[in-house]
Design a protein around this nucleic acid. Structure first.
Length: 202
DNA sequence: CGGCCGATTATCT
DNA sequence: GATAATCGGCCGG
């Protein structure tokens, strides 16, 4: 990530690499931040679950562009979802950020969105985290490598790959196989990770 | 718990 | 005109 080419890799490689990174949002000079704990990969026009399957449109344009940009789109008539553009320009790919563990700016998050229950559940959904971070289409195309901006990535914690849980992407509806079952979802579940570590599984 | 269902609108065909 | 990379509420067990 600190490396210039971190984002220049296919989404199925970038997605697990993003687990553990810190997403930082600056609102009114205040930091709102947390650790990315769940991602999904959407790779290329051949991936029939990827928006770019239909080629270049106003919406997918960002995905065809520079890696390291934010691809933020609107869905279900009410939700904004955040993705990070992957792979080289010209090759449409993106990683959906599905969950974040909140660390900084908790009061601002609460202002942006009512929070309840366990802290690990506050931002465990792609639309929940955009609300809490105050994100919408206005930052679509934003360069996430600019650490002097209102939205960017920072090095977070180092997560051994063995602690990640892998499975098929969710919410794809009638997407045909093999794309429907492609194991392109990565999750870091702290509870499970701790268990594994204590059992000496790793 | 788990499953079903309605909300609500930008974007695409 | 149809669809949607979701969420929260409501229902039954």
């Amino acid at each position: 990530m600190s490396s210039k080419d971190f984002f220049v890799q296919p989404a199925p490689l970038l997605a697990p690499a993003l687990i553990g990174k810190t997403l930082v949002r600056v609102q009114n000079g205040e930091r709102v931040a947390g650790i990315i704990t769940e991602t999904e990969a959407y790779q290329g026009q051949e991936d029939l679950a990827c928006h770019a399957r239909v080629g270049r449109t106003r919406r997918t344009e960002v995905m065809f562009g520079e890696p390291g940009r934010a691809y933020i789109y609107f869905t279900y008539g009410m939700h904004w979802l955040l993705n990070i553009v992957a792979d080289q320009a010209g090759s449409p790919a993106a990683v959906l950020i599905r969950a974040i563990f909140p660390l900084e700016g908790l009061a601002i998050m609460e202002q942006n969105r009512p929070i309840a229950g366990k802290r690990s559940q506050w931002l465990n959904g792609p639309a929940k985290l955009t609300q809490a971070f105050g994100l919408n289409g206005s930052l679509n195309g934003h360069d996430l490598r600019n650490t002097n901006s209102e939205l960017f990535l920072e090095d977070g914690i180092s997560v051994p790959g063995e602690l990640l849980e892998v499975g098929p992407r969710v919410g794809l509806g009638k997407t045909p196989e093999p794309w429907l079952s492609m194991p392109w979802r990565w999750v870091l579940n702290f509870e499970h990770a701790i268990e594994k570590t204590e059992k000496g599984t790793i």
